[in-house]
Design a protein around this nucleic acid. Structure first.
Lengths: 199, 199, 199, 199
DNA sequence: TATGAATGAGTCTTCATTCAT
DNA sequence: AATGAATGAAGACTCATTCAT
């Protein structure tokens, strides 16, 4: 109980990180309840006992994974805020964001649903994820504001935009509906987002 | 071994329906893996054994729940297709659809995420859900076509619209982000959808 | 409790007999623990509830079956005791007995092992079966005596003979070892038994 | 999922062996379906979980038990084949074999019937047992041949001999029929077997 | 008497967590 | 710190038996 200490030595930090990466990857790929601690240990090339040297329980591995994952989600938007917003060429800026996000979704595979399911089962995870979304929205609103795009109902519009990109990424990554054309989907979303931003 | 028969008698149908409702409700509320068959039985005021008189296994309760849930989702859209499309008054038509969908989402509570999580772990569930989405899209495309609204890239546009309404409903139902104003969200979505439909 | 009455009406007797036959047949074929009461009911074309109108529990069906089966085993030996013992032609008498026993074993299929397993788990079944063996031995000893064949160690010799025929029947019925020739087996056993009887 | 590994360390081998011994003993004593895994665990002084570290399921404990048991059965016959066959003194050789087999049956108690019942319910168990019987027969035939006793219909005769000894052992071990005298039974069987071997 | 739906105790098996080495 | 064997509570599912109709 409570004997989990934050590792200090470099090698220990690396080991904890490895458990998070491998464990989170496995859980997102196969589902939280389809992965055992033994699976994670083997996949991370350590012993089952060692897991409990770094984590209090299985769920904590997943939670730490979510925190890491959040950085990945944020990444294209953070990058966005380092870009100059060329209103003349806004379509290609939007498309660029979309493609980066899709790329990230491809990497994180099935993690989103698994996370969303956990969100409704664990208050702490819910809190983590809510903050991530909040942060993204605020950053973008602020960014647009800085670039001179002062939108009314800015937060709501940005939230809708993020939702659009998120949905689109899912559709493209899983390509569930083979009657839909991905490039057309991207094109239509670009038009919509431009419409949101410029009215 | 497959001795589950589809009940014919009224009382049996009612009982099976009760198990689905109670079981699906509990699963969506607490998560598939946080609910035991004993829980479901108790919640439905029957014995554990009775569950297996109507279902082959726990997952089938959830699957049947999804099928029911799909009908609930479909309902406002089916209703839509019985409505005359007044282009003069299109905003209120759209808003109507949105409010109906939100209402339904309120009823179905947390089910969506739980379903989406299961979608990635079970091919059969995935198939069920994929078909539902397909069906909704096709109905609406056809409806718009009938009403004289011949859109190019119709399927993609309708898919995006559904995504918008879905996201919106979730935000409103869970109201995760208390910095967002629901009515403004609805208003902005109406504008966007009108833009999609009428260019 | 104890509300099982011995049926008096003809139709009821027939029904009870049907349950025994069908149930015992099924149990011997598939094994006691691989057959459910529902299986027996269905196979006997009655309801599960009806079983308990005639039997206190599942095992009683099997026990009654064993009693019936015992009569079948006894039959060729009882028939023997109605035969004149021609010492000149003793080989063909023995062979005749053997072939009749094999025939009966063929009918009763896998029942023997299932019964023997039960013998060691249930004192009542053990008692039933022990008495059957005892009865057979005594009848034959008495028969041989009547026919003028006064053997010393008669009971032991008869017991060995019965064992020989039993083993032989099993080998022939199941034909487990396809390197053994059945007719040779029969021939060798006839020789042995003649040797026992006539020294 | 097949994560059962053959133990290598001495202590693990001993533990696995203990489970087999205790579990097989219990099953043979009380019947496969009357013994739970919890019973076996308690009887072997381990936890239920440990059983599944060494065995994939309950039946495998029984199967391994059968394999062990087979070695016990084989033992007196293997020993036989290391003995010189003194035709002058054949009766005592035969008696020796019989007494050794009885001794072994005493050790293995009620296992035979339980195994025979399982033989008819499980193909794999059937195969194991069939091979044991085959092996015994072949070894003895070969042995007799080596010692100059070239019998015609050798396999069939040896099979019958084994059956005689087996039946005898059972009678002596369980002593089901208290009207039979064990020593006389042994004596009569010796005579019969001598008759088989020397005609 | 007959039916078959309902019951719930009982069983095998899994797996997060602990602990002796 | 690391290991991996050991633990035992928990859960899905079965089935002999009961009981309302």
């Amino acid at each position: 109980m409570g004997s989990i200490r934050e590792p200090i030595k470099k090698s220990s930090i690396a080991k904890k990180q490895k458990i998070i990466e491998k464990g989170f990857g496995l859980i997102c790929d196969k589902g939280y309840h389809n992965v055992t601690c033994a699976d994670i240990a083997k996949y991370a090339s350590i012993s089952t006992g060692s897991i409990y040297q770094y984590f209090e329980n299985k769920k904590d591995i997943f939670k730490d994974g979510i925190k890491n994952y959040s950085k990945q989600i944020l990444y294209p938007f953070i990058e966005l805020t380092n870009t100059k917003l060329d209103l003349k060429n806004i379509d290609s800026v939007i498309e660029n964001i979309i493609r980066k996000t899709i790329e990230n979704h491809t990497v994180s595979k099935k993690s989103h649903e698994e996370i969303m399911a956990m969100v409704h089962q664990d208050d702490e995870v819910a809190e983590i994820f809510r903050n991530i979304e909040l942060d993204i929205t605020n950053r973008i609103v602020e960014y647009l504001d800085t670039k001179g795009l002062k939108l009314d109902n800015a937060k709501e519009k940005v939230h809708i935009m993020i939702g659009l990109i998120d949905n689109l990424s899912h559709e493209v990554v899983y390509h569930k509906h083979n009657n839909l054309n991905n490039e057309i989907m991207i094109h239509e979303n670009v038009k919509l987002i431009r419409n949101i931003l410029l009215g």
